[in-house]
């Protein structure tokens, strides 16, 4: 049952990304809502499954955005890196099951973890995209804008849903 609920939220994230957030851009960057999946996935799920799920989410986004392979690569890489990144800030023994939340990690560690996931994701996404067109200033602006907007937005979601996930 909880699996179905998670699936439901993942689909909601993807649909909102495609229909809403992809159209709200500032300095070329957008809110990357679907990265929330990479932040919140329970840590006990097998890493291979996590990476595969990242690939599938990326592929669906790619089909809708006509960027085949781009989001798939970025999400696969993010999913692969998320646990090593998490364990940079939190001991593996301290978080053996469940999802990383603001409450469990503490504000500072959660901010660090979220920011590092976003940096990995945006670098993978926009550096690969830049292969077809290269303009350094536009690229940097896009990366910074996306990271900043997504960071603020995901923190807001995390704060708003804090009580539920405790």
């Amino acid at each position: 049952m909880s699996f179905l609920i998670s699936l439901f939220w993942i689909v909601i994230c993807i649909v909102l990304q495609i229909l809403v957030f992809n159209h709200l851009s500032l300095a070329g960057g957008v809110v990357l809502l679907y990265v929330y999946v990479a932040v919140k996935m329970p840590v006990e799920i097998s890493r291979q499954i996590q990476i595969l799920l990242g690939f599938l989410i990326g592929l669906i986004l790619d089909i809708f955005c006509n960027t085949i392979g781009l989001h798939a690569f970025a999400m696969t890489t993010t999913m692969w890196m998320r646990l090593p990144l998490l364990h940079m800030f939190v001991l593996a023994e301290d978080i053996k099951t469940g999802a990383p939340t603001l409450h469990r990690l503490g504000i500072q560690n959660f901010y660090r973890f979220l920011l590092s996931v976003l940096i990995v994701h945006c670098l993978a996404l926009y550096l690969l995209e830049a292969f077809s067109l290269f303009s350094l200033s536009a690229l940097l602006l896009k990366i910074i804008s996306s990271i900043a907007m997504t960071f603020v937005f995901l923190i807001a979601i995390e704060m708003a849903t804090r009580r539920k996930s405790v």
């Binding site: 890493r47 291979q48 990476i51 595969l52 690939f55 990326g58 790619d62 006509n66 960027t67 085949i68 392979g69 781009l70 798939a72 690569f73 696969t76 890489t77 999913m79 692969w80 690969l128």
Partner: peptide
């Protein structure tokens, strides 16, 4: 395991990406 899963899927994504001509 995770590394190889990533490697296979990342290479697959990159192959799709370089052949993205519609």
């Amino acid at each position: 395991g995770p590394f190889f899963t990533w490697l296979v899927l990342a290479v697959l994504s990159l192959l799709l990406f370089v052949q993205r001509n519609p």
